[in-house]
């Protein structure tokens, strides 16, 4: 996969898989030996967020910065002062934004902290996700996120899956969708993810299709309480 800038912002539609991708990327960068900070920026939706995985991330030596009331019973969108420090940390600093333009608005307030710094903003898409499954809507979604966050995306992450129904064909077929979104918004594709617990890389090539995108294996961290490990 291409080398990314030290500030990595992960954005996308609600439920496109931002959190799962952010957690995977954080873990992988840490494995490579870099200091890694993961900032949970979602103050819109209280469920299924990266700070749900704080314990696991802590154990791997990844610093997690979360909204003040994350994982409590309070629905108060408050940002801790510590979040300002996330722009000046050593190593990689990942920002897991909230969904849609609503979630991206939070990033807009840090505009001054990010001005003059190099960053990559990854737009996570899922061709099986309702409301962005067509190319036009996926493009419109990106523009509204860019406008709210006052930042420009630099890559597309094709995170197409259909939960338990995901197979090698799902991944292969998603590449065409990703290409079309890529053309529509004029951004390169960083990678196409596949759930490594369900599919092997060889299975995707065995479909006989042409693999045009970098394949990135991901663990499924975001789960419902009845999905036993």
């Amino acid at each position: 996969m291409k080398r990314l800038k030290k500030i990595i912002i992960i954005c996308g539609h609600y439920g496109s898989g931002k959190t799962n991708f952010a957690v995977n990327l954080a873990v992988d960068l840490r494995k490579q030996g870099y200091p890694v900070t993961l900032t949970d920026m979602d103050i819109v939706n209280p469920y299924f967020r990266s700070s749900d995985h704080s314990e696991m991330l802590d154990s791997k030596g990844i610093k997690v910065i979360a909204p003040v009331y994350a994982n409590t019973n309070l629905d108060a969108p408050a940002i801790p002062a510590e979040m300002y420090s996330a722009f000046d940390r050593s190593g990689y600093s990942l920002f897991d934004m909230g969904g849609d333009d609503a979630g991206a608005t939070v990033m807009g307030q840090f505009f001054r902290n990010i001005t003059g710094k190099e960053y990559d903003m990854l737009y996570v898409i899922n061709g099986k996700r309702a409301m962005i499954e067509n190319v036009h809507d996926a493009a419109e979604m990106l523009y509204s996120i860019e406008s709210a966050s006052r930042l420009k995306a630099t890559y597309i992450v094709n995170n197409t899956h259909l939960k338990d129904y995901t197979d090698a064909k799902t991944i292969l077929e998603s590449m065409e969708y990703a290409e079309k979104v890529s053309e529509a918004v004029n951004l390169p594709i960083l990678c196409t993810t596949y759930p490594v617990s369900m599919i092997k890389e060889q299975e995707i090539s065995a479909t006989g299709g042409i693999i045009t995108q970098h394949l990135y294996p991901v663990e499924v961290f975001v789960k419902t309480p009845w999905e036993v490990n």
């Binding site: 439920g15 899922n126 099986k128 996700r129 309702a130 409301m131 499954e133 899956h161 259909l162 129904y165």
Partner: peptide
């Protein structure tokens, strides 16, 4: 099949 949140599915 598409992926939907329960809340979205109720609405649709």
């Amino acid at each position: 099949k598409v992926l939907m949140k329960g809340n979205e599915a109720l609405a649709e």
